[in-house]
Design a protein around this nucleic acid. Structure first.
Lengths: 217, 217
DNA sequence: TAGATTGTTAATCGATTAACAATC
DNA sequence: TAGATTGTTAATCGATTAACAATC
């Protein structure tokens, strides 16, 4: 409440997970120190941006050596709040929802999946990894029981807004929207679009504009 | 080559798919016109930003009515190059790779999945929707046959860079990286990170900072 | 010590917003 | 016509980069 509440610029926030991914690689390779220059090269940034970004973190580098990878890992996790545990529910037990539910690596990074839900009676009750697909009427109960703070929306576009409303009503604090739909949420809740199709479209633009670049002088 | 090559700012590019998602909803609801103000509300932007963004497109609005949804749809698709067909391969036939392979909606938006690959002999040959999991040695052949321009990396982090290299060597022009790893690519190729875990981490930060906001006066 | 690298300030660059004439 | 909305310019705001003193 007193200090520490310097709000990071959004571009910085989006880069933090990329630093974290890189740091995990370095830790895995048992690299103990990394310089801003090396990080910049790995993430396609300038070293200046890297130092500026890391200056927001609870961390200090050392001249001539750089940043200690283990401290960097800790500082990034602290800032991203992925050191504390987050509890997730997934709504929509289609291919994508199920893939995320059984996806092993979330748990290792502080995100525990506590339930998967659907409205289709024919799949309710079926096993998805260690979970069982539940009907929506159980949502509130699971959210309360586990203190779920994040809901993943993995339903068809037409159902996305209604599911968002239900998740918000159940008390979830953040929504990750994978559906191809625009979602409205109240002010106290956070929402992030993470649609693969949108990424493909963005990538297609990047490819096109790179082509044009090479085409003319 | 002559005109038309005004390069859009990256923030604009990232918003275009969101406009497109919204426009699809409007088309579905048979709404024929939409104003910058209405789009702004749906996407949480200012109407000024919306008009600025749309001014990059091959489209003109009409005073008092706004933008025609069907023209907007066409203009967005044209700019994003998702009107022309893109051909995709997926590397990694785990849960996520398979989920994307059978995911119906890509095809309807101009992205056709032409193959799914893995190195695990025990799953090579198994069916994934209408596709069959193929060994990596077939990659080049499929890329050539279909003119594949996009590769999706859906393998464990440790294998991601090698897969990226193979995709680039096969002639793919853009990579969508779903793996929790930093990938290096040559200058002529485009790459976009689209990791669900990174989105969860970003969302966790958003939740945390919204909490702090409300916590102090 | 000399050289490399951080942390931070100031300068530059770019994106968003405000404002308003043009127009339907 | 009057009012609403676009398209665009200029002003503001914010992010990135350059530069350099401090330091290991």
């Amino acid at each position: 409440m007193t200090e520490e509440s310097k709000k990071l610029p959004h571009p910085v926030i989006r880069r933090l997970p990329k630093y974290l991914a890189r740091v995990h690689e370095l830790l895995h390779a048992e690299v103990e120190w990394v310089s801003s220059q090396e990080l910049a090269e790995a993430l396609n940034l300038t070293s200046s941006t890297v130092r500026q970004d890391l200056s927001y973190l609870d961390l200090t580098g050392i001249s001539k050596r750089g940043y200690e990878t283990s401290s960097l890992d800790a500082a990034l996790n602290k800032e991203l709040d992925s050191s504390s545990h987050h509890h997730i529910v997934i709504v929509g037990a289609g291919y994508l929802g199920c893939a995320l539910a059984v996806h092993g690596s979330f748990a290792g990074h502080g995100f525990q999946t506590c339930g998967i839900f659907d409205i289709d009676p024919s799949i309710i009750g079926s096993r998805v990894g260690i979970l069982k697909v539940q009907p929506m009427k159980n949502l509130q109960q699971i959210v309360d029981k586990f203190g779920v703070d994040i809901g993943i929306i993995a339903v068809p576009a037409a159902a996305a807004q209604e599911v968002a409303d239900q998740l918000v009503a159940a008390g979830v604090k953040g929504l990750l929207n994978l559906a191809y739909a625009s979602i409205q949420i109240p002010a106290g809740v956070s929402m992030l679009d993470a649609r693969i199709l949108a990424s493909l479209q963005e990538l297609a633009y990047m490819i096109k504009s790179k082509n044009e670049e090479t085409a003319d002088g």
